[in-house]
């Protein structure tokens, strides 16, 4: 007999369900943060390489495009942070009932937006001051 086919999964499952959506977002933001770390390492290496290298890196990373990248990384960081806290609470055995986990999914979205706005305002404010 021919091998049995595998029933469809990702292509048919409802992805916008809050469970899958928050899980995929958490992983995707983690991945983006890891990539963002490359920029951070570049900046740190420039810092260690002396004033001339640092001036070049600072000029490059200060470009408008990179300001947008930083803002995006900040948004991604805010979500990943809040989602991580949700997982920590879950690991204590709390908040795992259906209604609770649905509520916390929305709570994480709201909280991460607040954290993002607060962090962005603080950083932009510092940028203005200096």
């Amino acid at each position: 007999m021919a091998e049995r086919p595998t029933s469809p999964h990702l292509s048919v499952y409802r992805m916008y369900r809050y469970t899958l959506l928050t899980s995929v977002l958490n992983r995707a933001t983690g991945l983006v943060l890891a990539l963002g770390l490359i920029l951070m390492v570049y900046w740190l290496m420039a810092l260690a390489a002396g004033p001339a290298a640092y001036a070049r890196a600072a000029a490059l990373l200060g470009l408008g495009v990179f300001k947008l990248v930083w803002l995006a990384l900040l948004a991604v960081f805010s979500y990943h942070l809040c989602a991580g806290v949700r997982h920590l609470v879950w690991d204590t055995g709390r908040g795992l009932e259906r209604a609770q986990s649905r509520a916390s999914a929305y709570l994480v979205l709201i909280a991460s937006a607040v954290v993002f706005v607060a962090l962005a305002a603080w950083l932009l404010g510092r940028g203005q001051a200096s």
């Binding site: 369900r17 809050y18 469970t19 899958l20 899980s23 879950w90 795992l96 259906r98 986990s101």
Partner: peptide, 9 residues
Amino acid sequence: CHTIMNCTD
């Protein structure tokens, strides 16, 4: 188990 919560859902 990565606490995706689809099971309970």
